Simulated assay, not measured.
Amino acid sequence: MLNKNLEEQAATLFSENYFNRNYNVSKLEDIATIKYGKELPTKKLTPKGFPVFGGNGVIGKYIHFMYDEPQILVSCRGAASGNIIETYPNSFVTNNSLVLEWNDYRYYEFYKQFLFANPLHTYATGSAQPQITIDNIKNVPFPCPKYDEIRELCSQLKSISALHFENIVESNKLSMLRDTLLPKLISGELDVSNLDI
């Protein structure tokens, strides 16, 4: 619920600052390198490690990561094609997603919000098995403001993103604690009957 509220704040902030601006326009391939993630069979996923992002979000963990900074992904296979996903720091990305490596990472928050507001579903091809290729999206028009025009907006969006990620970390810690304690409570290994609450 907290993160949903933060996402709405970021979307509103972007909308208020983006619309009615006459920014120059560039093609996606001019402002980012578009790459496929790496193949990783599910049998190679590990119980512990770094988060692995598929075409719909986290699918498991792996002992290696590809990117130390968060990345913007475009789901490129199946019904989710065109969905926009943000990875966590220190993540692995499978080849079910395209990674957008921005030429200037200062624009990251700006382009993240632009893509959340304008996902790329319409660029998918194929009916039985929809997909998005690099060729499908390399010419997608993107606003290209001067950084000084959006510096303050990016700073505000970055602050919201930091809170968003802190909430994810806390939620994951609580989930791990629950998964550790609940079986012990159910089995009777852990007795809390004498706790004074």
Rank of each mutant, 00 (worst) to 15 (best):
E101W: 05
S187Y: 08
F142L: 12
E170Q: 15
K173Y: 13
D196G: 06
L13W: 05
I31N: 08
S91H: 04
A128E: 00
D148L: 06
P130M: 08
F14W: 08
G78Y: 09
E189W: 01
K158F: 02
E166Q: 11
A10L: 03
L157A: 07
K44S: 15
L157R: 03
I59F: 08
R77G: 02
S159I: 15
E189Q: 13
I63A: 14
S127V: 14
A117M: 06
N20R: 13
K35S: 14
L181T: 07
D135H: 08
T87I: 01
Q131S: 14
C144F: 13
I132C: 04
L163W: 04
C144Y: 13
W102V: 02
G49E: 07
G57L: 09
L177V: 08
F142C: 11
T94Y: 08
R21G: 01
P183C: 09
S171D: 09
Y108G: 00
S81N: 03
R151Y: 10
Y23D: 02
V58S: 12
K146W: 02
S171M: 12
E8F: 04
E69L: 15
F110S: 07
Y23P: 14
S193D: 02
Y105S: 11
G57I: 12
Q156F: 01
Y67D: 12
F110M: 03
M66R: 10
A128N: 03
A79K: 11
K184G: 05
N90V: 02
P51C: 14
H164E: 09
C144L: 10
C144N: 13
V99W: 02
S127N: 03
P41H: 12
L177K: 08
C154L: 04
I72R: 15
Y107T: 03
V93H: 09
K48M: 15
G78W: 03
F116V: 05
L120M: 14
D30T: 09
D179E: 12
N90G: 00
N96I: 00
S193R: 13
P141A: 05
S155Q: 12
L73R: 10
C154Q: 06
K4T: 03
R178N: 06
A162W: 11
N3C: 00
Y108W: 12
E86C: 05
A124R: 06
P143L: 00
G60R: 06
Y23T: 09
N5L: 15
T42I: 12
M66S: 09
L174H: 09
D148R: 13
L115Q: 03
T12Q: 08
K184F: 06
Q71H: 05
K173P: 15
K44C: 13
G55E: 13
Y111S: 05
M176K: 11
H164P: 00
A162S: 12
V52D: 06
V140T: 14
A11K: 14
G55K: 08
Y111L: 03
N22A: 11
V192I: 13
S81C: 04
L98N: 02
N103E: 09
A162V: 14
M176Y: 10
R106Y: 04
S155E: 13
T94V: 02
K35E: 14
R21F: 01
E152C: 08
K146A: 14
T12R: 09
L181K: 07
A128F: 07
L190Y: 11
I186P: 07
E149K: 07
S81H: 07
E69K: 15
F114W: 07
A117I: 01
